[in-house]
Write a protein that binds this DNA or RNA. Structure first.
Length: 417
RNA sequence: GUGGCUAUAGCUCAGUCGGCAGAGCACAGGAUUGUGGCUCCUGAGGUCGUCGGUUCAAUCCCGACUAGCCACCCCA
């Protein structure tokens, strides 16, 4: 049996990698416009980094983490998400003492032991951003404006920004009690899963797609009606700022989050083009998390973009890859020896260029140059060598020019620009 | 963890009611003594996912396993 990659761990092959580079490039550019800087973090963390923050009763912690003991017996976990490690680093490196506000972003792989399917993998990649030290609703709005800006810049449309507020601990506790009361009346009408959720996490019933639960949900209590004055004011202000920034959004009072640390504002960017996995990005405010890590009270808000899902939405064309420029078709050993030196000088000039390593027919070399997308081919054979010339062919127009082999690089540079 | 579908050339898939294994695309060479894309010709490429069972004979029928896809749960 041949060795293969681990289930749900995918290779990103050269045909796909330009899209990844494109997405990363756009993210770095846009985030830079808003003052964010990259934070590069380890992939392994001590297990409590996640168990204490994400919530012991969540699916991620209960069944999806890649955890194992280190050689010395300490339990380590391959990060299933990015926020907890960022907060850990933020507190550990006392970043709050250097600036009143920290704006950080990260790009990298995350790991969850789930059954793979469309848009879901065991190793997947996220681009995330976190903003620390800004309790004001204007920060929430700017964060969502940045996400929107990013998606516009990538050229993806048919996306929808949905927002909600989960309130603080106090409003949420009140609401939870009301929900349990409401759904308990009609326990029989709930689907099997929701019957279980009633005990485990009643908020999730609101997220159920089953028809029977849908009916029941219509008259269910709404979280937004249970927000305290402060939380309610905060949410109103977020919406005002979004309107002010001309960011289109939809309030979805049934949207809930799978991680325990969220407070107040939550949001999701969804699409109707990915089957069951409709969330391309998601995030929210987490005003209590820093304290959980032993840091000072620091309000924060952040989001993560699912790179695989985003890339599934990109057009399947080649506009993302950089075009190679000059291919040298050399015939015979002498020509090849001259060519390798010309290549050295072309590359020194910043010109992407290659040649064929084995002696092959011109036809075969032309084919390779064409297939690889080269715009120009420099042909060097015996005839050219004798006259100390080379032929430069423009692949698009088929025009050919003779160049002196004395100093061909300057001529080539002039021609291809 | 649960369910459905799938597994034959590098890729996408036909196919044999059980009897020598097929196409298209891609690849290589040629038609064009040194010129790509289009066309035509030729060629190379297979333990028919693995293991076992039935049979004179299995890629085909049966079983188990493995892998992949999709969905549930949940999530980016």
């Amino acid at each position: 049996m041949k060795l293969t990659a681990i289930k749900g761990f995918n290779d990103i092959l050269p045909v796909e990698s330009p899209k990844w580079q494109y997405v990363e490039r756009v993210a770095r550019e846009i985030f830079h416009l808003y003052g964010y800087k990259e934070l590069r973090l380890p992939i392994l963390e001590k297990t409590p980094v996640f168990t204490r923050s994400i919530g012991e009763a969540t699916d991620i912690v209960e069944k999806e983490m890649y955890s194992f003991p280190d050689k010395n017996g300490v339990s380590l976990t391959m990060r299933p998400e990015g926020t907890a490690p960022v907060v850990r680093s933020f507190v550990q490196n006392v970043l709050y003492s250097k600036n009143p506000v920290s704006k950080l972003y990260y790009i990298g792989p995350m790991f969850r032991y789930e059954r793979p399917q469309k848009g879901r993998y065991r190793q997947f990649h996220q681009i995330g951003a976190e903003l620390f030290g800004a309790p004001d609703p204007v920060a929430d709005a700017e964060m969502m404006a940045m996400v929107t800006h990013f998606f516009q810049a990538t050229g993806i449309d048919r996306l929808s920004l949905q927002i909600n507020s989960l309130g603080c601990d106090e409003c949420r506790a009140k609401f939870k009690a009301k929900l349990i009361e409401y759904f308990s009346k009609d326990k029989g009408a709930l689907c099997e899963n929701c019957a279980r959720r009633l005990e485990l996490n009643p908020l999730r019933i609101l997220d159920c797609k089953a028809a029977s639960c849908g009916e029941l949900k219509k008259a269910a209590p709404v979280i937004l009606d249970y927000l305290c004055i402060d939380c309610s004011d905060h949410f109103s202000a977020v919406k005002d700022h979004l309107n002010n920034l001309e960011v289109t959004y939809k309030v979805n009072e049934q949207m809930v989050r799978g991680l325990d640390y969220y407070t107040r504002t939550t949001f999701e960017v969804t699409t109707d083009m990915l089957g069951a996995q409709n969330a391309v990005a998601a995030g929210g405010r987490y005003d209590k998390l820093c304290e959980t890590f032993g840091g000072p009270k620091t309000p924060a808000i952040g989001f993560a973009i699912g790179m695989e899902r985003l890339i599934l939405l990109l057009d399947d064309n080649d506009k993302y890859s950089l075009k190679p420029q000059v291919f040298i078709a050399a015939m015979g050993n002498d020509a090849r020896n001259v060519s390798i030196k010309i290549l050295k000088r072309l590359r020194a000039e910043g010109i992407s260029s290659e040649m064929e390593y084995s002696i092959k027919s011109l036809k075969s070399q032309m084919r390779r140059a064409d297939k690889s997308g080269y715009s120009f081919v420099l042909i060097i054979g015996d005839e050219e060598l004798k006259k100390n010339l080379a032929t430069l062919r423009n692949m698009a127009t088929k025009e050919q020019t003779e160049l002196s082999l004395e100093n061909p690089v300057d001529d080539i540079v002039r021609f291809i620009n």
